[in-house]
Design a protein around this nucleic acid. Sequence first.
DNA 1: CCCTTAAATGACTGTTCGGTCATTGTAATA
DNA 2: TATTACAATGACCGAACAGTCATTTAAGGG
Lengths: 192, 192
Amino acid sequence: MGKRSLQKLATTHKILQAATTLYTKNGFLQTSMEQISQEAGVAKGTLFIHFKSQEDLIDSVVKELLRSFVSLRVFQAQPNQTLTDLLIIHLEIIHKNEKLYTHFIRERFFLSKEANQYYITIQKIFSDFLAFAFTHAQVYTPLPHYSLFNTWIGLIHYYLENFDLFNSEKDILDTYKDDLVYNYIVLIGGAK
Amino acid sequence: MGKRSLQKLATTHKILQAATTLYTKNGFLQTSMEQISQEAGVAKGTLFIHFKSQEDLIDSVVKELLRSFVSLRVFQAQPNQTLTDLLIIHLEIIHKNEKLYTHFIRERFFLSKEANQYYITIQKIFSDFLAFAFTHAQVYTPLPHYSLFNTWIGLIHYYLENFDLFNSEKDILDTYKDDLVYNYIVLIGGAK
DNA sequence: CCCTTAAATGACTGTTCGGTCATTGTAATA
DNA sequence: TATTACAATGACCGAACAGTCATTTAAGGG
């Protein structure tokens, strides 16, 4: 591999890095290509050599976000892991990209078809993981899994999207992780 | 009252009407002042006589939305109304402006301080109504009211914001109203 | 060592859109 | 009827911003 193509790869990486940083900090809609080029330390035109459009760049960042969740897809639970453990794991994985994920769920409606397909895939991953968790933890309720899932993910999304309502200094999930899981467990624990 | 000031009031009304129609259909961010002026049948400059800025117009529409919820504030329950009844009432009131409310919760982050203040007020109204409903229906759970509220409103918001995931022809709340209430009741009914 | 090829540059273009203002027409008033 | 006041108009302005392209720079191949 030549010096030139190595350089190109490095530049692509720098741009993706810069884009991720700014999208995480300010969101997708509030970040211009100009800002990203400055953050990456390259000219604006360079961005369009590496990504054919802004949409393409956003899709790439979202694709990376999706990849951060795939470990849930092949998750192997330990025999003694409880539902609490598994829900905590779910929140911890989201927490790794909490701010980016929050911007994504807030703004995805304004993003491309592609990005929205990734969103659906992510929700599917979460849903499957939860279904697995319920089964593994032998949760019995009269309610269907999808209903339990919607309640759980709805609660998480409500906290993330409305973090300004919960005057928390740190990240939402850091602060409320235990509370969220505990309350949810009590809720469905009772639904027998 | 003179012909002129009547005319002015009528124009203000036409503009608010047109704005509400377009915000409902396409959302706040996707609707331009130009479009609104056309829908209202007036010149673009006219909008700025009646509203000092786009932000001001949006705030006015959102304020109207808020007003559609205030009946919950002074709600007098019948003695025999169950929690199910009250949750249904809550959904029906949201349903009256379902699409506008959905756009609002999706986009409020990009709107003014004022609009966000209205958002907080709305959430407070919902929260108070739910607290009242729990008390009235003598719901006992080991969980605090705020937790029950967050679960409920989180679930509703998740359905509204993700209506494209639930392939429903009609409005989300029309289709899923009973399901939502029933499942939620089972959930917290069990949490004794 | 020269020539080809491709990465990088940044000035420039076109478009969208919120907001302005000089002008117009008409209601209110004296 | 003449004068004033104000609602309405729409051409225009300026800012923001995605995307383009002629030009520059340097790597790679013969």
